[in-house]
Amino acid sequence: MEAQQNNLADGQHSDTHSPGGAAHGSVKEYVLGLIISIVLTAIAFYVVMFEVVSPALTLAVILVTAVAQILVQLVFFLHMNTSSEQIWNTTSAAFIIIIVGILIVGSIWIMSHLNHNMMIGH
């Protein structure tokens, strides 16, 4: 009962049975998430600050490390997964990612075409 209460309190950790055991496993989870995040952040800043690769590759590294770090934080810090307790959180997040994609890609697409057709900068 107590474990269940804890599960619902933060809406996660379906596999926890006792607060002590869950806490032990999760410290590892948070530390792992932190270490991977630090490494990914360091890589992104390193390639930009020391200009080690070409600009195009630098851009690719920034994007890949950013997406990877977001996924790492969603899994290790926000504990997103596909368990029955979390499935609606994950489903709504997937929906929002689609909306955000349409919003950002659509805006850039429309505005670049607008600029092109208005011959701004030509």
Binding site: N6, A9, P19, G20, A22, A23, Y30, V31, G33, L34
Partner: peptide
Amino acid sequence: FTFGMAMLYAHR
């Protein structure tokens, strides 16, 4: 990360 630690202590 430290907020995560606070959550763990809250569960305990």
